[in-house]
Nucleic acid binder design. Structure first.
Length: 709
DNA sequence: TTCTATAGCGAGAAA
DNA sequence: CGCTATAGAA
């Protein structure tokens, strides 16, 4: 007996949703409705099987996905049962477990620990290198940080004693600061569950059903965590697609999916092969591409959406030319596709700059998703650091960041003096400041500044616990005169910096109103936020520009995959290893399968790298896609010339000859438009122009006084 | 201590 | 080319 809410599922989806207890692996192809299957599975468990929401754990890949999942379940069930459902990312779930129980590990870490991001971790490493005078390790700080992450995932290979001692210093340093890095969140949770029986039993008992999305992207530690949590009930409902495994560099292993049936001999395996997203041309092209991979279980995706347009391919002369093509094409599409239905997908973040400049010049609204995140901006991180410090005074990275920001007369010498006191008395930096001031260990002037700094932090601590987070931070910003400080900088971006600070306060306010959260919850949310979390529907009608990694799980009617060159696809650094080339191929596959209706490929024959022009070959992956599915777009010479003239923005005298389709023009009444077609010639030349605000107009070139842009 | 100029180095993807 | 660390001046 199935109730009507499940009637819109197909047979395979149903089979998955209605599975009996026990391990289930759903091999879900791109666009086959896997998020929906998980949501309905939860709905089924709650409604038909009367499972308590308290007993369900759902793991998603991003916070955005978990929010969407919650909303979907909410729609199926209504509000009252939601609060107990645990839905979140691996990292947020671990943080939640640790905030409750980490003190049971009897380490020096308490529940108010700070979560260090990559930048913080690197700062720790920098300081250790400095303190230990190990500046000559011949490894870069980033390299060391990545290596530590590798070690924490259990993949660390042999390493020199130099690095080994550095690693233990790093670990010690984090503990002293009451801080965990991203890997620690997972690692300490596994440790806690392994070593503290009461905690293990508590969660094993509780989670009767565990559901995991994007299972192909789990690493060894996450796998171990799942195994422990599911230890009692063994009801693992895993959904994934080996063809979309693109996080190998973060330790994810396709092996977890492939070997799942061996680990659980009673596992049920279901394949979802019907694709609801893309037209057949797109889907079959993507399938053809990924079929060149060896490491896969294999699926045969199909769709009802037969046919569809060919993939349009444009090869530019320069990266500028490429960006111009994309911009012009978006303009042409704008009558049928609003900007927010269009995505530009890239291999690397650095590619965004060229598109950003072109879109800015051509007035195309865009949003860069990912790259440097909002909370990673310098000015935002400054304020965040004050707040972190107020909650966790052991956090010396945040302390060092804010102690002289804005400048308050506490320079290098003073900081060294503080560090000396801290070392001698074996106390934290913050305590050293307090002690040093009380015992008159610093010069008069420095002492006065430090006294004021201590007062500031003390007041902040009080405020943080007594008043609303947004008020506490607004007061802080006021007190340290931070806006004026930003404005005093000779910085081209200072205006946007001030904006960002205002946005931070708004974000805090929104958080306390919408979720009733306190500051600690906000800081945690913030430090675990993902690229996709910055995407919100209300953000206006803009083209989304992002890496393929950031686009995972999303879909768009129109997709441009740019930079399809050897060196990006596959990336220069992956070319040598076969398994990494396969991952690069999967990456392109993921990009292609984001597209619903129109898919564009673009590349460039040359590209600026470090300011030098590099000649580039097309991506070898292009030749793995059936030729019949691709249509190459050639641009007339005139247009190519204009494209080059086109940048940076300059007005040029009108030469009627260049008013050919695709040219961007400006009309004093109608604004910016693009030439669609032309008829006649010379004085009687008429052109049809599509204007962004006024639609199509047919104009006599002689009278229209068009300017080519 | 703070501000400014410039040399020198560097970008693979991200919770 | 753009960022940042650092040296040197104020």
């Amino acid at each position: 007996m199935t109730s009507s809410i499940f009637s819109d599922l197909n047979d395979k989806q149903r089979e998955a949703v209605f599975s009996k207890d026990g391990p289930v692996l759903v091999l879900a192809g791109a666009g086959s409705g896997k998020t929906r299957v998980i949501a309905y599975r939860i709905g089924y468990l709650l409604k038909e099987r009367s499972v308590s929401p308290y007993s369900i754990l759902a793991v998603t890949f991003t916070n955005k996905a978990s929010t969407e999942m919650k909303e979907r379940v909410l729609k199926l069930l209504g509000k009252d049962r939601m609060p107990f459902l645990w839905i979140g990312t691996f990292h947020s779930i671990c943080a939640r477990i640790l905030r409750e129980d980490i003190e049971k590990l009897n380490l020096k870490i308490n529940r108010h620990f700070t979560i260090f991001d990559k930048e913080d971790s690197k700062s720790v490493i920098k300081r250790i290198l400095k303190d230990e005078k190990l500046g000559d390790t011949s490894f870069g700080v980033s390299e060391i940080s990545d290596y530590f992450s590798l070690i924490k995932r259990g993949a660390g290979r042999t390493f020199t004693s130099n690095i080994s001692s550095l690693y233990s210093l790093y670990e010690k340093n984090l503990v002293e600061q009451n801080a965990l890095d991203f890997d620690d969140l997972l690692l300490y949770t596994v440790k806690l569950l392994k070593e503290v029986e009461s905690v293990r039993i508590k969660y094993q008992q509780r989670f009767q059903h565990i559901l995991v999305d994007e299972y192909q992207d789990t690493n060894d530690v996450q796998e171990e965590l799942l195994t422990i949590l599911a230890g009692k009930w063994k009801n693992l409902f895993l959904v994934g697609d080996e063809d979309q495994s693109i996080y190998g560099f973060r330790g994810s292993k396709v092996r977890h999916i492939v070997e799942f049936p061996q680990r659980y001999s009673n596992a049920k395996i279901i394949r979802l092969e019907k694709n609801y997203r893309s037209f057949d041309t797109i889907l079959s092209s993507a399938s053809a591409l990924v079929s060149h991979n060896k490491e896969r279980l294999g699926k045969t995706l199909w769709t009802d959406k037969k046919g569809g347009e060919k993939i349009k391919f444009f090869s530019g002369e320069s990266d500028r030319d490429e960006a111009n093509f994309v911009a012009d094409e978006i303009f042409k599409l704008s009558s049928s596709y609003p900007h927010n239905k269009i995505a530009i997908l890239m291999r690397t973040n650095s590619q965004s700059r060229g598109f950003e400049e072109t879109f800015l010049n051509k007035g195309i609204p865009y949003q860069i998703v990912g790259g440097i995140k909002f909370y990673e901006r310098k000015e935002v991180k400054d304020i965040i650091s004050y707040l972190r410090l107020a909650i966790n005074p052991y956090d010396r990275i945040s302390l060092l960041r804010v102690i002289n920001t804005p400048p308050r007369g506490i320079g290098k010498t003073t900081i060294e003096a503080i560090e000396k006191v801290s070392l001698e008395k074996n106390i934290t930096l913050y305590e050293a400041i307090v002690a040093g001031v009380n015992e008159n260990l610093f010069p008069q002037k420095a002492s006065q500044s430090l006294r004021e700094f201590i007062e500031l932090i003390k007041d902040l601590q009080v405020e943080v616990s007594n008043s609303k987070p947004s008020e506490a931070s607004a007061n802080l910003i006021e007190k340290i005169d931070y806006i004026n400080y930003l404005e005093s900088l000779s910085d081209l971006k200072k205006e946007s910096r001030v904006e960002n600070i205002k946005e931070l306060v708004s974000a805090l306010k929104e958080f306390e109103v919408r979720e009733g959260g306190n500051l600690e919850m906000f800081l945690e949310r913030q430090s675990l936020s993902s690229d996709q979390d910055e995407l919100n529907e209300e953000a206006g009608d803009s083209v989304k520009v992002m890496t393929i990694h950031s686009a995972k799980g999303l879909e768009f009617p129109v997709v441009f995959i740019v930079g399809l060159e050897d060196g990006f696809f596959p990336h220069e650094k992956s070319k040598m290893k076969e398994d990494e080339v396969e991952e690069e191929r999967r990456l392109l596959y993921v990009g292609m399968t984001r597209a619903m209706e129109k898919l564009y490929f673009t590349n460039s024959k040359t590209r600026y790298i470090y300011g030098n022009v590099i000649v580039r070959d097309p991506s070898p992956f292009l030749f793995e896609i059936p030729l019949k599915n691709i249509e190459e777009i050639k641009i007339t010479n005139e247009k190519a010339i204009v494209s080059k003239l086109n940048y940076p923005l300059e007005k040029h005298e009108l030469n009627y000859n260049i008013l050919s389709p695709g040219i961007r023009v400006y009309h004093k009444n109608y604004g910016v438009g693009i030439v669609l077609s032309s008829e006649g010639s010379g004085e009687s030349l008429k052109v049809t122009v599509s204007f962004s605000k006024f639609g199509r107009k047919k104009l006599l070139a002689k009278l229209a006084n068009l300017e080519v842009m």
